[in-house]
Simulated assay, not measured.
Amino acid sequence: MTELIAGIRLPDSAIARAATQLVRDTEDDVLYNHSRRVFFWGALTGERKSLRYDSELLYLGAMFHDMGLTERYSTPDLRFEVDGANAAHDFMTSHGVAEQDIEDVWLAIALHTTPGIPEHLRPTIALVTAGVEMDVLGIDYHQFSHEHRDAVCSCHPREPDFKENIIDHFAAGIMRKPQTTFGNVKADVLALKDPNFTRTNFCSIILGSAWPG
């Protein structure tokens, strides 16, 4: 029987099982459990908002969304979100997934740290971000029942020091490429964790451009 947690059934297709194994083999417990929780928060949000979503696509987006933080999938110059999106793209392509579905998962992962946009897009994209925002930022925390929160976290534990741990994971994944934090929330991570970090200033770029006026 497939696993049922907080009323949400985990996808049990061949591609979902393969994704689970790949992420389990690649990420540590902190990122793996976080990614699984993101799926449940996203799915529960979809149920609460009566959205028609594809559970398998939501699962793939949730499971791959932080793969760009790992050494295996990190590139020297791309945002970690894009690295994770590209990893999902290659994985789904190898399993013969339709291009539209691949694009939705790619966008879901690439945009998951860009607030204010995903919520207006298709359900896979919106719900991955909703799941991330619940697990990391506590957004809509009280929209989830105690029973649902306990059920999810009993299966995929949230460590007592998860808040510090996840920030440390973000920092470790992007410290080598600080230029990729321009214009996104991860600049705040390096401002906290890297004493040598200097933010790129949008207005300074405008004023210092080659244009005469």
Rank of each mutant, 00 (worst) to 15 (best):
H142W: 14
P118H: 08
H112W: 13
T129M: 12
E133H: 04
I117Y: 15
T129D: 13
P118Y: 04
S145C: 11
C153W: 02
M134N: 10
L121W: 12
D161I: 14
A151Y: 13
M175S: 02
R176Q: 14
M175C: 07
V128S: 06
I166Y: 06
G131M: 05
R149I: 13
I166G: 06
S154D: 15
P160D: 11
R176Y: 00
E159D: 09
E133G: 00
L127M: 05
P118R: 10
F144W: 04
R158P: 04
F162Q: 08
V132C: 14
H148K: 12
P115I: 09
I139E: 13
H112P: 06
G173N: 06
H146M: 08
G173Y: 00
V132G: 00
I174E: 08
I117L: 15
Q179T: 10
L111H: 11
E147Q: 13
F144S: 01
I125Y: 07
D168M: 05
S145E: 08
K163D: 06
P115Q: 11
L121P: 14
C153K: 15
R149F: 00
T181F: 01
R158N: 01
H169R: 14
H142Y: 14
P118T: 07
H146A: 12
I166S: 03
E119S: 15
V136H: 06
H148L: 04
H156R: 08
F162E: 10
D135L: 01
H156Y: 12
E133V: 04
D135Y: 01
D168R: 11
D161W: 14
C153G: 00
I125R: 13
E147I: 06
R149W: 00
F162W: 15
V132R: 01
R158M: 11
N165A: 12
S145D: 04
